[in-house]
């Protein structure tokens, strides 16, 4: 049996808004095994952002169990959560969130700066390897404003890879990109997945979900569908099938 990266049982998250209690998650259960490429889908208001925050250890559930790589998140303090994020999760955001006026290399090094056990030499080497994995070895010293959107997102993926996390957590990572670049990013993620990386991808675009091996759909704070995708589309082929635009 494969290692369970993530286990969620009857997860609930409630917010107090004045006198009213908003129940964003009303009992969500599923688990993810090592090497899966899962998309979490749902329309806005379905609770997917809340779920993402909990999975990303940025937020704690009100009720229920969440085990990340065997660690029960609910009992951890703020600092322990930070450490867990640092070691086990790689975030990729919709708006890239790169540090301005900071080179691609240094942006990639960022998570390792908060890991005291890594020397500066190691940090440099690991960042180089991560940038190589996203095929940006020739852009090491470029600043974010000198990179295209797709390249910036690849730097962000490199940053998510650099600490060798158990899971890459992407939040609408293709939301700001055109179709072609989106496919490029998906192709890259598929490639990483084939090398064994577990990926959780939150999106509301069905055609992106088609590239994943499993789709969990949320509605009103509950899982309404959880299906394995038997017929995973290859992003590489989809990319090749796109008409070559020569408008410019």
């Amino acid at each position: 049996m494969k290692r369970k990266i993530l286990e969620i049982h009857d997860l609930k998250r409630e917010f107090k808004m004045g006198d009213e209690i908003v129940r964003a998650l009303r009992g969500v259960s599923f688990s993810i095994e090592e090497g899966e490429f899962v998309t979490i889908m749902g329309s806005s208001g379905s609770g997917k952002t809340t779920l993402l925050n909990v999975i990303g250890c940025l937020d704690k559930p009100t009720e229920g169990v969440y085990l990340l790589d065997g660690v029960n998140v609910k009992q951890l303090s703020r600092n322990q959560l930070a450490k867990l994020r640092n070691k086990k999760i790689g975030f990729v955001f919709q708006s890239y969130n790169l540090l301005a006026r900071t080179s691609a290399l240094e942006n990639t090094e960022l998570p390792l700066l908060y890991n005291a056990s890594i020397s500066s030499k190691e940090r440099h080497d690991k960042a180089l390897m991560a940038l190589e994995a996203v095929k940006l070895s020739d852009r090491l010293h470029h600043l974010p404003n000198q990179l295209s959107g797709g390249q910036q997102q690849r730097v962000a993926i490199a940053r998510a890879l650099v600490n060798d996390p158990v899971m890459i957590l992407a939040d609408e990572a293709t939301g700001n990109l055109d179709t072609r670049t989106s496919y490029e990013i998906m192709s890259l993620l598929q490639e990483l997945n084939q090398h064994g990386k577990t990926i959780v991808f939150v999106t509301h675009e069905p055609d992106i979900a088609a590239f994943s091996s499993r789709t969990v759909t949320l509605k009103d704070g509950r899982v309404i569908k959880d299906i394995k995708n038997e017929n995973v589309k290859s992003a590489k082929k989809a990319l090749a099938a796109l008409p070559v635009s020569d408008d410019y």
């Binding site: 940025l58 975030f91 969130n97 600490n163």
Partner: peptide
């Protein structure tokens, strides 16, 4: 603020 959020999400503690 956004930079602080990012740093925290990649593992910066409050103390950092």
């Amino acid at each position: 603020t956004k930079e602080i959020g990012l740093r925290m999400s990649v593992g910066a503690r409050g103390l950092d």
